[in-house]
Structure formats: C-alpha cells, structure tokens
C-alpha cells in the first residue's frame, strides 16, 4: 500500500504539488494521471525518498521509503529519466543494483530474459534504443521481485507489443496482490490496465475513482433509429425516460441501451439502430483536467 497525505512540494515560488492526498491499494493497478507538469513525477519521487516534501507525508508499506529495510526487495521503481551509466553494459548495471540491494545475482538473468534483453545484456547501455532503455529500467524495477511497483511513464518508448506485454504483466502482478502505481499523461494508454485512477492537475487532486466510475462518466446519450420513432419516444417518456425525436426515424435517449431495447421489444417496435454514444476516455480526462487545448500525445 502507498499513502500520500497532505503532500505539498514547492521549488522556490513554484508549487509543484499542493496538499495532495491519495491511497494506492494492494492487489490493484492504480493509474496516476495528469497532463505534463501536473506533479506526477515529483509526487513519485517524494514517495521514493528522492525529493524532500515541503509538507505532508508519504509512506510505502506503512513506512517512509527511507526507513524501509532493503528497499529494493520491497519496492521496484522506474523513473522517467534514464538512470543507468551509458558506459556500463545492461547486465553490469543490473548486477550493480542486485549487489547493492542484496538480491541474488541469478535474478539478473531472470529479469533480462523477462524483458527480452538477454541478447543485448553485454552491450553498453549507450548503444540501446529508447525502447531497450525502457525495458532495462523495467528490469531494474522488477529485480527485487518487489511487493510495490512505482512506474513513471513505463510505456514510453515501448512498441505496441511491448505495451501489450507490459499491460498483461502488470495485471498479472496485481493479481498476485502487489501494489502498482503507474503514471501516464494519456488516459487511453492505461485505461485497459488500471483498476483505479488518481487524476491530478497543477499539483492538486482532481479525482480519485475506480476506472469503472470514470468509464461511466463517459456515457452520453443513446441513439435510436426506428421506422416508428415517434411512438417509441412517447412510450419512453411515459416510462420516465428523457427521449427526444431528432429526425423522422431517429431519437436521442438519455438512458442505457438495455432500457430502450426492453421498451421497444415490449411493444413490438422494430429497431434499425441502437447505439450508445460515449465520450472518449481522453475527452473525459481533458474535461476533468479542464484544459483541452494544452494536451499533447
């Protein structure tokens, strides 16, 4: 479990994070979302003891990160900035981390195989592509087989297969009861992976909710096309449903598709189309963060 309580971080006059509180539960993948510059990386670095909070507290598995014994065995982290020496081979980089963290050397080969870098393990890191660097970072995060994973933009640089692998892998880790916090600035990127969402903007909490709740926010009107549209509209209104005739054969109904289908079937009305209109998750995200013009990628 990860807890953030009343966290504020200021850099001079710039407020990076302001009175931020949220909890990340074990056994779930929690997406940490916000536009670039929202304060995600700062928050994660405070959680990991790399940045000193101005006020507030954070804890991982019940303790501040700095007080954890053998933290690399308990918490795996992937930071947005690449953190391997370019002159060292990928395998040597992991061996150094394993030695420092008290992790068996055999684990290095396991994680290299897991991220499909065994063949490149002897190459110096400066020759790695962006995707390979990201996979090496993931290998480092997984090295201690940790209970908690804190991953800052883990999909950066991964190809579609890599993203799919990451998604399935995170789901399987969460199913084992581990705590996973994954940041992203693109909701659609993590939508299929996460159970819960923490959305921040300009350092402040915008929303903490289950993914299902956010998906529900995306639901809009139901479009119905029927040769008997006016009668169906009358019946729906009689059932207390907000239905409007928008064309001779078309209705706009503010009700789930199931409800419309049931009413139509009960009265023998033919339907040619029954479509649930939805806002994209990205639209919901942009609406929540309130600045639709600023978003990129």
């Amino acid at each position: 479990m990860i807890e953030v309580d009343g966290l504020t971080k200021r850099y001079g006059s710039t407020v990076a994070v302001q009175d931020l509180s949220f909890t990340v539960s074990a056994g779930r993948v929690t997406g940490f979302l916000g536009p670039n510059g929202a304060g995600k990386s700062t928050t994660m670095r405070v959680i990991l003891g790399l940045v000193h909070p101005t006020s507030g507290t954070t804890s991982v598995l019940g303790s501040p990160y700095r007080e954890l014994r053998q933290p690399e065995k308990r918490v795996g982290a992937l930071l947005e900035t690449f953190d391997a020496h370019p002159g060292r081979s990928g395998r040597s980089h992991l061996r150094v981390l394993a030695l420092a963290g008290g992790i068996p050397r055999s684990r290095v080969e396991e994680v290299l195989a897991l991220v499909e870098l065994t063949g490149a393990g002897r190459r110096r890191v400066k020759g790695y592509s962006l995707g390979m660097r990201q996979r090496l970072g993931l290998a480092a995060a997984l090295l201690g087989d940790p209970e908690v994973l804190v991953l800052d933009e883990p999909a950066n640089g991964l190809d579609p297969q890599g993203i799919r692998w990451l998604r399935d892998f995170l789901r399987s880790l969460a199913a084992e009861g581990r705590t996973i916090l994954v940041s992203s600035h693109v909701l659609a990127e993590v939508a299929q992976t996460v159970d819960d969402l923490v959305i921040i903007h300009r350092g402040k909490l915008v929303q903490q909710a289950a993914m299902a709740e956010v998906e529900a926010m995306a639901a809009k009107a139901t479009t119905v096309r029927s040769p008997d549209a006016p009668r169906l509209a009358t019946l729906l209104v009689a059932e207390g449903v907000d239905a409007t005739v928008v064309a001779d054969d078309r209705l706009s109904v503010h009700s789930p598709t199931e409800r419309v289908g049931e009413v139509a079937a009960a009265h023998g009305i033919v339907l040619h189309e029954l479509t649930a209109e939805r806002a994209s998750l990205e639209e919901v995200f942009l609406e929540l963060t309130g600045e639709p013009g600023e978003r990129g990628g």
Binding site: R45, G49, L50, E72, D83, A84, H85, P86, L97, A100
Partner: peptide, 12 residues
C-alpha cells in the same frame, strides 16, 4: 550520468 536516483533507491 543521472545514476544518483537509482543509487539512492538502494541507499535511501
């Protein structure tokens, strides 16, 4: 080389 973050994760 920015390796300090990874080093401090092992030695907080």
């Amino acid at each position: 080389h920015g390796t300090i973050a990874r080093t401090l994760l092992a030695a907080p």
